[in-house]
Design a protein around this nucleic acid. Structure first.
Length: 464
RNA sequence: GGUCCGGUGGCAGAAUGGUGAUGUAGCGGACUGCAAAUCCGCGUAUGUGGGUUCGAUUCCCGCCCGGACCUCCA
């Protein structure tokens, strides 16, 4: 209602995968919200599907920071994995070179997209000791066993196995498509530790030189930085099973007093031209592939254009549309007198309530973007307040970070005075009513990718 | 084969047990020397067959179609 206090905060609702319902978010400690996301395995450039998970986390964390006084966001780097070993070998480089380079590329790509860095970004290889401690404890309390140099988690020892992903362990065995290793007691048992040969990365352990299984690292790192129980664990829906199910089993068996994650947030997959991304189809797109053809914010807007739990189809047409939408938003900022970059603006402007309400409703980014359109309408009509609110609301989604000048014209470059000279010449021709000459000059500029806009105040230009 | 999610206008994409947002594309108009931008107006949608209900796009069941997962993919 209009008489509600402006400062009232909406209640955040999130869809919890485990409860399979959208429920009010109640933090363990409202003074300090804790979030863990599964980060990348660093063996290759990140693709736009990876990016969707990172963007979902980014909007979630931005919103949490707006609603709560303190948020700790942990996102790991997986820098030990058999895919890494294989790639390093194929490239003829050592593992550390590959993982360091790929990590830097990952950071650069996310920075280009305006994804805020996590508060803590632990690396798997820096947490081997924590993993071994957990594995030893799981063996001690009867949830894991050693077999032929491997340590395996015994799925049968955990009655709640399958509860997160809604699976029945008996049916899993029947449908398993992977050959069951002979040393497993049960088909569903998964590796906590496995032996390494001389060519594979390995660490000394009570079970011989070896390396961790995939799932244990997230259990170890989330526990180290966030404790037995934390608020939100997120990732792509393809991680729900087995990765998250296994993480949960390990953590709850290792720390029976804790609850592990209270809310599980999973984003849906991204399609490209209606099909799953795959190298064989030739539709595999890295973040860099897309950034070569459109501004980063266009990609960001495109990916936020669908609610995170819906499958999103990436297309070229969609990217182009996102870019035009941003043209409109930046035009609205300019019309409303917001001409500096977001980083230069005061941050105490009120958050538009419609945007906040939409995002608080399980991160309804499409609805929030619709709210931005309403603000843009008002800003285009000349409202400065609306323009300020537009930028503030967009900022909650990491959008409209540039100044309108930067967006339309880029950083000042050497060619700019040439453009200004041609515009001045065209203006003179128009005054002389030599429209043929004026149009020829406009065409000349258009050929250079410069689009002119005549207004009452004069002629402005932008890059196509 | 099993489990789960989804099918809304040309396209993208919200919402809802009671006249279906928003954007984009299209059409008409205003403005402009013409454009560009902006503004005004218009049209078009709930996959399919049943059921519950005064009323279903929404809830339930069947069917069709698409997608995810089924032991190291975000």
């Amino acid at each position: 209602m209009s008489d509600a206090p402006q400062r009232s905060q909406p209640t955040l609702s999130l869809h919890d995968s485990q409860r399979r319902a959208t429920v009010p978010f109640e933090p363990i400690n409202p003074e300090h919200v804790t979030v863990y996301y599964c980060g990348p395995t660093v063996y290759d450039l990140a693709h736009i599907g990876n990016l969707r998970a990172m963007l979902t986390a980014d909007v979630l964390v931005r919103l949490l920071r707006h609603l709560y006084p303190r948020v700790t966001f942990v996102r790991n780097i997986t820098d030990v994995d058999d895919k890494i070993t294989a790639r390093a070998r194929a490239n003829g480089e050592d593992i550390a070179t590959l993982t360091q380079r790929t990590t830097q590329e990952f950071h650069a790509d996310l920075a280009a997209l305006g994804v805020l860095p996590p508060d803590i970004e632990p690396r798997a290889t820096h947490n081997i000791g924590e993993m071994q401690a957990m594995i030893a404890r799981l063996i001690d309390n009867g949830h894991a066993y050693e077999a032929e140099g491997h340590v395996l988690f015994s799925v049968g020892s955990f009655a709640a196995y399958g509860a997160l992903s809604g699976r029945n362990p008996d049916e899993l065995e029947a449908g398993a498509r992977v050959e069951v290793a002979p040393y497993k007691k049960a088909a569903g048992d998964f590796v906590l530790w496995k032996p390494s040969d001389a060519d594979q990365p390995g660490w000394d352990s009570p079970w011989g030189r070896g390396r961790p299984g995939w799932h244990i690292e997230c259990s170890a790192m989330s526990h180290r930085y966030l404790g037995d129980s934390f608020d939100i664990h997120g990732g792509g829906s393809d991680l729900l099973f087995p990765h998250h199910e296994n993480e949960r089993a390990q953590s709850l068996c290792c720390f029976p007093g804790g609850r592990f994650a209270n809310y599980w947030v999973h984003n849906a997959m991204l399609l490209v031209d209606g099909e799953k991304m795959s190298k064989s189809l030739g539709n595999f797109l890295t973040i860099r592939d897309v950034l070569a053809q459109a501004p980063a914010e266009a990609l960001r807007l495109l990916l936020l254009g669908a609610q995170y739990r819906s499958t999103l189809n990436y297309t070229q047409a969609g990217l182009a549309e996102a870019r035009r939408t941003l043209d409109r938003f930046y035009r609205a900022l300019e019309a409303g007198g917001v001409t500096d970059a977001a980083s230069a603006a005061p941050t105490d402007a009120p958050m538009p309530h419609g945007v906040l309400e939409a995002l608080a409703d399980d991160l309804n980014t499409p609805k929030a973007i619709a709210e931005l359109h309403a603000l843009a309408d008002a800003a285009l009509a000349g409202s400065h307040d609306a323009a300020v609110a537009l930028r503030q609301g967009a900022g909650l989604m990491g959008l409209l970070r540039a100044s309108p000048g930067e967006w339309f014209r880029g950083a000042a470059s050497e060619g700019d005075d040439v453009i200004d000279a041609l515009i001045a010449e065209r203006l003179a021709a128009r005054k002389a009513r030599d429209f043929a000459r004026a149009d020829a000059l406009r065409d000349e500029l258009q050929a250079k990718g410069i689009i002119l806009e005549d207004t009452r105040e004069g002629t402005s230009w932008r890059r196509a």
